[in-house]
Design a protein around this nucleic acid. Structure first.
Lengths: 192, 192
DNA sequence: AAACGGCGTTAAACTGGTTTAATTTCCCGC
DNA sequence: GCGGGAAATTAAACCAGTTTAACGCCGTTT
């Protein structure tokens, strides 16, 4: 049951048997059906959720009622409304299962206990946040310097598994364009 | 000389006298004139630079020769090409002083030594990266959900000091619009 | 198997933002 | 303080991406 998450953690830090035990004892499993919400806007997001299987999207609904996809997350990734989780403030985002999902959840008190009792976890999450920061930089650059076609093709190249797995309208939203326009881009690519 | 950076670090972690001494002994001062580069594309970015005074921008030049501003940085912030710094790969970005700048620089070996000898620094940089990640999220959201006018006004509200300090063309680039269009937005705001 | 509703596609009108180019203003180096 | 070059402004033509609406294709429900 904990194999996947232990293998994931072992990519960055090594834990003794006892440390593994402590860590896994803090994790609470949670399963979601398709279309079920892990977090809803207005809730306080109480967990960082490690995804054992399945696929989710996080998005916000703006003042005009329009949805904007912030992230996709699949196996071996973590997801949360990070601001809400850290500061116990109401979540801006919704996080919805696009497929049946199994997660392992860690609450803030448990995370802080981990930091205290197994300092290597400071390192582990530092590395995760570093990587997240690098990926975000890429995405920002993409947004200010690339055309819609370039963004679409870059996504296909970098995350082919996700592109094949999520509805196009959500991908279009993630990429900052309309589903109609993305469909036109797909057509142009086919003709080429 | 080290007052500013010690005060900055003290916001997140507490250090003993000896730890402060070790930390500051690893910092190398570097000053830049206006228009001088802290990092040039193609170089390996060997330092995280803490800014004691002055203002810089990081940007990339794309295949068409167009510049795109990724970040501004002022007093009390850190700047680097983080990917280049971490992995010793050639920098994608240029980092240029917009004013005379004083920095304190930390190289990767020193940073790793800090992590080893003062584990609190794992925590310190975890928190910095967490905050960076949150700010990046905001910006991405802004890019996919807001109009140019909304982005401009949000920036003015959040970073008025920077907006007043940097050339408009750089700000326009940061916000993902042309200087000409931003000038039109400014005019509309004045008329209102 | 019929009816329903959500999703992707197509086409056409439209608009927010770009491009180009001319004019003015502002630095700042001498 | 003066001259030159870069930055900001204005106007007009242009284009990338949006909007609206109609249609066809599944997959689900009944």
């Amino acid at each position: 049951m904990f194999d996947k998450i232990l293998a994931h953690v072992a990519k960055h830090i090594s834990l003794t048997q006892e440390e593994q035990q402590l860590f896994t004892s803090l994790l609470k499993p949670r399963k979601l059906l398709r279309r079920q919400f892990l977090v809803q806007a207005g809730d306080i997001c109480r967990y960082e959720s490690f995804i054992v299987s399945g696929c989710l999207r996080s998005y916000i609904t703006d003042a005009d009622g329009q949805e904007h996809v912030l992230h996709f997350a699949i196996e071996d990734w973590w997801i949360s409304d990070f601001g809400s989780f850290l500061h116990h403030t109401p979540s801006q985002t919704n996080i919805e299962a696009l497929e049946p999902v199994e997660t392992l959840q860690l609450d803030l008190a448990s995370l802080e206990r981990l930091y205290r009792e197994i300092p290597a976890f400071e390192r582990f999450f530092r590395i995760l946040h570093q990587n997240a920061y690098l990926a975000q930089n890429e995405r920002i650059l993409s947004g200010i310097s690339r055309t819609a076609m370039e963004r679409y093709e870059a996504f296909l190249k970098r995350y082919p598994a996700i592109a094949a797995r999520v509805p196009q309208k959500h991908l279009a939203s993630y990429l900052g364009m309309t589903p109609v326009f993305m469909s036109q881009l797909r057509k142009k690519r086919m003709e080429r």
